[in-house]
């Protein structure tokens, strides 16, 4: 399962629309979740609706929260999205087998059996979460909370039975790049002292192009994996 989690506090203002980019992600089988940090209310109505739109296009969830609620929110959203992804897959199966369109249509006993299988899958399937962090100037005071949330997420993911990996990106980069990889796929944060060392923060918010970069990274790393798998087997990765 693949997810992107975007944490931002404002509207995109450069490049392609983030809603289009999120739809691209969805077509690649990547769910896009969005958290809007609203500490000083600079998000505005337009920003809030953009956040909800991005998540809708990306088949994920959106929430507007205070910086201090970030850890709890990020952790819950990721879990919720895993459940939803599995629910969708199970629903598709049910439809082809039984002609039922939803789990709710099953009588409680049967539902119990189906949910047992879903819970098992939720625990055991592999999961990749790419965090995309808005590092524009207004986010600076919130980055400590963002780091805490990332550590907290890792802790929750490590408790899963299935393999869980995270990667962290931030945008924009100091040299006008749309998006910079701060931490590549990893299963732990041991020995990572700080995810965002000395960021050069600029004013632009190229959310759309940054999202596209992350989608491309997903595609690249999965094709690399396939090559590697062919060569040495998967436990090396």
């Amino acid at each position: 399962m693949k997810q992107i989690l975007l944490i931002t506090d404002g509207c995109s203002n450069v490049g392609m629309s983030p809603i289009v980019a999120a739809a691209h992600a969805k077509s690649e089988g990547i769910a896009v979740n969005v958290v809007g940090v609203v500490d000083h209310g600079e998000l505005g109505e337009y920003g809030a609706s953009e956040i909800h739109e991005i998540a809708r296009a990306g088949g994920g969830l959106s929430r507007l929260v205070q910086a201090k609620e970030l850890a709890q929110t990020v952790q819950m959203m990721t879990r919720k999205t895993v459940v939803q992804t599995i629910q969708l897959a199970v629903q598709r199966e049910l439809q082809s087998v039984l002609g039922n369109d939803s789990i709710e249509a099953l009588p409680p006993e049967k539902r119990g059996e189906v949910v047992k299988v879903m819970d098992e899958l939720t625990e055991t399937s592999g999961l990749q979460v790419a965090l995309l962090i808005d590092a524009s100037a207004s986010m600076r005071p919130k980055l400590a909370s963002v780091e805490e949330a990332i550590h907290d997420l890792m802790l929750s993911l490590q408790a899963r039975a299935g393999k869980s990996e995270i990667a962290v990106f931030h945008f924009p980069g100091s040299k006008q790049e749309d998006c910079v990889l701060s931490l590549d796929w990893t299963t732990h944060l041991k020995g990572v002292p700080s995810i965002f060392p000395k960021l050069h923060m600029s004013g632009t918010t190229p959310t759309g192009p940054a999202l596209m970069k992350v989608v491309e990274h997903f595609i690249e790393s999965s094709s690399q994996r396939k090559e590697m798998d062919g060569m040495i087997g998967d436990d090396v990765i």
Partner: peptide
Amino acid sequence: DAVDLQSEINALK
């Protein structure tokens, strides 16, 4: 959410 509640019911059972 039927799934969330059912998961809880399964635990109780």
